[in-house]
Nucleic acid binder design. Structure first.
Length: 269
DNA sequence: TTCCAGGACCCTG
DNA sequence: CAGGGTCATGGA
């Protein structure tokens, strides 16, 4: 199937460290699970070519890649702020809409880890415990697998966190809806009660799993680049960065963050 | 060999 | 509240 897209870049979107459950087949050909089925996708100019027979594919692609969101407002922010003008080179990068539990589990794994190994662990979990060996395992599967099993898959100290958080959600699945229905601040508080979830991972989960676009995850890359761009390379607390992001970018803060993160990592800033 | 990775957690001063 | 050590693992 062929889908025409505007303001979308598949490579930037998939390879900007927000999503780990994909495999890159050749240059710029990706496969991942959409609606519980594996699809293969590539982009040529303004066309996406998708190998899949799942029903209602168009709306699911639009939903997953946030294609109904008009991000020209984001580009205006970049044009007005000279610190951000270079980020216009990343046009088409969008925030992927992930399954909430997938996002929680994925970013618990991300703690003090590198992207390559996060992906390795993600796929190892999927192959050993996930449905059809392609989906991120359910809370039930991870709870019953246990901490020792997860350690053998290479999770290290994160095994305890993932097991305990899985158990909480397995016993109280309604908490996902609670987070979804809560406002940003309340949702973040709920998430941070999960073992292994602090302020940064909570913000990632809220941004990538719950589409709360005002969240602004601060890792070491964001901390460094924000200090450089807006605070004269001085030491700056995360709280000050958060209020700066909220005041300047509001509901676009999450998008700005993702562009800053990817831009910093590829040496654009 | 040493250092680091999309941090969280715990303990000190 | 700020600042440090610790936690597994593998790649550079």
């Amino acid at each position: 199937m062929k889908i025409r897209v505007i303001d979308f870049n598949l490579q930037y979107t998939i390879e900007s460290g927000q999503f780990f459950g994909y495999k890159k087949q050749k240059t710029s050909i990706y496969s991942f699970a959409l609606d519980k089925q594996l699809i293969t996708i590539r982009q040529s100019k303004d066309n996406l070519f998708i190998d899949s027979n799942i029903p209602d594919l168009l709306s699911k692609i639009n939903d997953f890649f946030d294609l109904n969101n008009n991000i020209s407002e984001l580009y205006k922010i970049f044009e007005k702020d000279l610190n951000l003008t270079r980020l216009l080179k990343l046009k088409g990068l969008r925030i992927i809409k992930q399954n909430p539990w997938d996002a929680i589990g994925s970013f618990i794994i991300s703690s003090n880890n590198n992207i390559k190994r996060i992906q390795q662990i993600w796929h190892s979990l999927a192959e050993h415990l996930g449905e059809n060996k392609i989906l991120f395992p359910t809370p039930e599967k991870l709870t019953k697998a246990g901490e020792t099993y997860l350690r053998r898959l290479g999770l290290g100290f994160r095994a305890e966190y993932l097991k305990k958080t899985s158990e909480i959600i397995y016993k109280n699945p309604g908490i996902i809806d609670q987070i979804n229905n809560a406002n940003y601040e309340s949702a973040k508080e709920i998430l941070m009660e999960f073992p292994g979830v602090g302020p940064k991972i909570a913000d990632c989960v809220l941004l990538f799993g719950f589409q709360k676009y005002e969240s602004f995850p601060i890792d070491i890359w964001i901390s460094r680049i924000m200090s450089k761009l807006y605070f004269n390379d001085q030491k700056i607390s995360n709280d000050e960065i958060l209020s700066f992001a909220k005041n300047n970018w509001g509901m676009w803060a999450g998008y700005v963050q993702q562009y800053l993160y990817h831009g910093a990592r590829i040496g654009l800033l």
